[in-house]
Design a protein around this nucleic acid. Sequence first.
RNA 1: GUGCCGUUAGCUCAGGCGGUAGAGCAUCUGACUUUUAAUCAGAGGGUCGCAGGUUCGAUUCCUGCACGGCACACCA
Length: 508
Amino acid sequence: MLPDDPQTEQRKQKLAQLREQGQDPFEIHAYRRSHTTAELASAIEAVEQEHEQGDGDGAIDWDTAGFETAVAGRLMALRDQGKSVWADLHDASGKIQLWVTRDSVGEEAFESFKRLDLGDIIGASGNAFRTRRGEPTVHVSEYQLLAKALRPLPEKFHGLQDVELRYRRRYLDLIVNPEVREIFVARTRTIRAIRDCFDARGFQEVSTPMMQSLYGGANARPFVTHHNALDMDMYLRIAPELYLKRLVVGGMERVYEIGSVFRNEGIDALHNPEFTMLEAYQAYADYTDMMELFEALLCATAEAVNGSLTFTYRGHEISLQPPWQRISLMESIHHATGVDFEQLHTDEEARQACQQLDLGSMEKDGWAALLDKCFDRYVAPDLIQPTFVTDYPVQISPLAKRFPDRPHLTARFEPFIGGEEIGNAFSELNDPMDQRERFEAQVRAGREGDAEAHPMDEDYLRALEYGLPPTGGMGMGVDRLVMLLTGSTNLREVILFPHMRPEADTVD
RNA sequence: GUGCCGUUAGCUCAGGCGGUAGAGCAUCUGACUUUUAAUCAGAGGGUCGCAGGUUCGAUUCCUGCACGGCACACCA
């Protein structure tokens, strides 16, 4: 059990006292309210407008014009004035002021109202009115304690600042930092806009396994778990890709999935081991269709969150107005660094060519890793306005289709906004023989120490052998999109419960 | 994983060249029937992250550990 501080001890005593008096708040099962606080504020405004439009002369007499209301929420401020108490009541929609007077609730209830604590959940009913200072208020005639808060809340003015506590105790963060709730409203709107966008285009939302006996669809290390009854290790998925394409083989021509994926790697401002991925596949389409899809998705989500196609991210004014620019991956690197990866054919040549650049230690890096480093360092940070980076080399695109006339390149792109990659898309490789060779190359890379290489997936190859239509596919990190749209600079600001090491006191 | 920095009251933060600490909010007592970071008067509250070491004495110095932040590494 966690140790109690004196304030908690005091609150527990108050609860014990209530129980002795037969007023245990935890015995209450429901409270029927007539208004949320936001509804009540607009209802009060409506009364005022009616008064103004009618033959209303002068001030409203709230004793007659007011109306009965019942609200419920968390007590967030108490301003005791002796024979009257002002309180702020917060609910999910906002807040409302309560005015409790001795005359309105009676001597006994008035005294026990004063014994309530900040954080207590109460329901209150009474006459709605607006104070002289303009605050919509309920003049309480009856109230009920619905749940006792046994622990004191963080400070009302500064809120909860400690980032560790904010993430560990997100409930507290949500109670005292109203802007946090806004971010998660934006997140919900984003996901709803994504669904609307796909649904309108005739896509079917599906769920594919999160626990898999074989992982794939991305270059990442998986988490391993164990199924006891089957006595077998399983992997948490790193991507839904290979399952979704099996569905396209099965005739589900337009599918998408929004769900968690898990990657066993470091944690930082842009990475959480579990994050939310969107993937979509469209039969008879190619990667250029996916570009349009990205443009449509970003526009729809930005409208849903910010009501505009332009927004500010890290000081940059960004416009999502389509069409977005396109640049070729290797040309952009050539342009920025003078290194032309298309002319480099071995790891050694690539290392030679990169000597003059500031890439840190390169001994372990091959051609592909150096290309990545060059791009990340010299090109990506400048891709502020939405840009499709195209034509990825086949070596680093094991699931993407080649260009017939340029077989070393794939019909693949990654969109960048604000200097950050927000997704990945390509024309899907549907040639089972080519796919087998790509897997074999991955398996070789794995044997040579690439921990993120794909394993061989015979069933996926068999599915391709039944025939995958030409298909365009895309993936997007939903959390990063929400970061972008909300101006957040840390992924954990848009994930309700980001991963943390266990807190010593709370585990046995 | 490596390096640097941090951890002081429920919360937000000061402070201490080694002699066990302060403020604001919150809490408690009292005053106050239009307040809203209410106000006024008074009071209580601390294993200074944990464990060792040095020392007459450690919250302060040293070492280790835990958790967190930032950077790098790994990685979308």
